[in-house]
Design a protein around this nucleic acid. Structure first.
Length: 524
RNA sequence: GCCUCCAUAGCUCAAUGGAUAGAGCAGCGCUCUUCUAAGGCGUUGAUGUGGGUUCGAUUCCUGCUGGAGGCACCA
């Protein structure tokens, strides 16, 4: 429809001798200003003539054309909305999908949990955003590979194993604490770290393997709760040697020796960037080199058109440097890579730090929210995801537990409840909906329903799931208003049409929640 | 010191260069003998500050103030 109007306006401008004028066609911010609006009248300075031309050449879907403050507004006909209701019901679970990325293969890396440590609320953030991005990408027709890159070597592992050997309650926390407070423990942990790398101590290897497995199994249970199923797991123990090799192959060309370490002088390529160490003075690859190894692994195991990495924004500058290094090594990889940074999840009381041991685990947050939702896990997961996905990806989230389960608007609960309520009405009805039975005024909910596919598309293009969240909240509000003011099931002639609206709403809400990775319970 | 990002109502968030800056919470006042009141209706309240570009700026550029993150051998 938008495109149709665009072409019509282009034609009008041609005939009015104003061809080439720039203009846009969009949904106005307020419904009083119509379903579509154009600024072509302002940009062409022919508002009056253009409005008159459009009024006399309007397509059948347009009920009326009005000029207001220079803008030309299009009000669509009730038949247009009825047609869309019918179309939504026909497409059902597929309504909202598009094919803009058809034939492409996209890898989305997110969550990036570290074995031996607990999954904390930061991982929850990455997971919620990553899963939503993955789904939005799928809904745009791409084949998506979900990837999880995990740090299974390094000092944190040694700390955890040190704790395991002491058989304490929380091995990682105990190890981390001892490392900073106890000089002897620190030495023991560093020795352990070296031994883990060497992989020669059989007893230690067994401890390592069992600890890793337990940890990964536990992660899997949480991923299941959150609705994530990864296709690929990458480990730092694998990427490290590959990355080290890449750096060594490019010594003198891209990487240089400096103070005993191997560094990349990124500022030579971009003054905003800085030098970073890729291989430390002990000859061990750092996180930076490992990232190069990971990149190679990704592109060599899958024929990717795009690789999206989702991390916290504390890694933004680090990533810019690494991406520049990738660009020097293989620009074709670089051009397909995208780093999406999210903020930090905080509680109103302040930030948590994993170093001080005050981490809030993902599980404990889920359980706390669950405790406030009649013990309903679907509602709890939805509540948490909503809080994360309601605002722009880059910013921090202030997570207020009570607000997240708020029964009054702007929450996951609100969306799920509207969905369950629509389902309940449909179950009560003894007849089927019929979008052909319309009469009367067009409702707000009808004006919003058909917009869902374009919202999904925009979310994909801008890597911004929050557009969907915002839209669904508005949609749920319009549905609740409709529900509160009109008796859906009754004997009058329009009842089948109202039922069709409810059915279409249920489809869109369910698809919307699904594409965000939120559960959509049938009953609450 | 340098780099990046951010600043919207008392609070938490929206607003592809457009119209009277939208929601929710909190506050105040209504609303269940009717399909799920975890709902609905009404009401009070905001673009940090100085310039600039533009027919039009919350949006773009820039000065200032305030905040967050990062800046060599952690990840």
């Amino acid at each position: 429809m938008q495109e149709k109007l665009y072409k019509l306006i282009e034609k009008a401008l041609n005939e009015l001798g104003a061809s080439g004028t720039k203009f846009s066609v969009e949904h106005p911010t307020r419904v009083e200003f119509g379903d579509y609006s154009t600024n072509a009248g302002i940009t062409s300075k022919k508002s009056q003539d253009l409005a008159e031309w459009l009024e006399s050449h309007k397509p059948e879907e347009v009920d009326r054309v009005e000029q207001r403050a220079g803008f030309i507004n299009f009000y669509l006909s009730s038949q247009f909305f009825a047609g869309n209701i019918k179309g939504i019901i026909k497409r059902g679970g597929d309504f909202g999908r598009n094919e803009s990325l058809k034939g492409e293969k996209v890898m989305v890396e997110y969550t990036d949990a570290n074995p031996f440590k607990e999954l904390h609320i930061g991982h929850l953030m990455s997971n919620a955003i990553g899963e939503a991005v993955a789904r939005v990408t799928e809904w745009s027709g791409a084949e998506v590979k979900r990837a999880n890159y995990q740090g299974d070597v390094g000092l944190h592992v040694a700390k955890a194993i040190w704790g395991m050997m002491k058989q304490v309650e929380n091995p990682y926390a105990a190890g981390a604490k001892a490392y900073t407070e106890d000089e002897q423990a620190k030495q023991e942990i560093e020795d352990l770290n070296k031994k883990i790398y060497e992989h020669k101590d059989l007893e230690l290897n067994a401890l390592y393997e069992s600890g890793k497995k337990d940890s990964l199994d536990k992660f899997e249970q949480i991923y299941k709760k959150l609705g994530t199923k990864f296709d690929r797991y990458f480990f730092e123990s694998e990427t490290a040697p590959i990355g080290k090799q890449i750096v060594e192959d490019n010594m003198g060309k891209i990487f240089d020796e400096s103070e005993g370490a191997v560094v990349f002088h990124a500022e030579k390529f971009n003054p905003q960037l800085h030098t970073r160490v890729f291989i430390n003075s002990q000859g061990l690859p750092t996180y930076e080199a490992k990232e190069l190894g990971l990149t190679k692994q990704k592109f060599e195991t899958e024929d990717l058109d795009q690789s999206i990495v989702i991390t916290a924004n504390e890694q933004t500058d680090y990533f810019r440097v690494v991406l520049e290094a990738v660009n020097q090594i293989n620009p074709r990889w670089r051009n397909k890579m995208m780093h999406l940074a999210h903020g930090v999840l905080r509680l109103p009381s302040g930030k948590m730090s994993s170093r001080t041991g005050e981490v809030i685990s993902a599980e404990s947050l889920i359980n706390e929210v669950k405790g406030k939702t009649k013990d309903d896990e679907a509602v709890a997961v939805g509540a948490i995801k909503y809080m994360i996905l309601r605002s722009n990806v880059g910013g921090d989230i202030i997570f207020d537990v009570d607000k997240s389960v708020s029964t009054e608007g702007d929450s996951g609960v609100y969306l799920q409840y509207a969905h369950a309520r629509a389902n309940s009405v449909l179950e009560k009805a003894d007849k089927k909906g019929d979008a052909g039975a319309l009469q009367g005024e067009v409702r707000m909910v009808e004006r919003l329903l058909y917009r869902f596919p374009e919202i999904v598309l925009r979310s994909q293009r801008e890597y911004a799931p929050h557009f969907i969240t915002t839209y669904l909240t508005e949609l749920a509000s319009s549905f609740n208003n409709f529900y509160a003011h009109e008796q859906v099931i009754s004997d009058d002639a329009e009842s089948p049409y109202r039922l069709a609206i409810v059915e279409a709403f249920k489809i869109v809400m369910k698809n919307g929640l699904t594409v965000l990775g939120m559960p959509a319970p049938e009953k609450m």
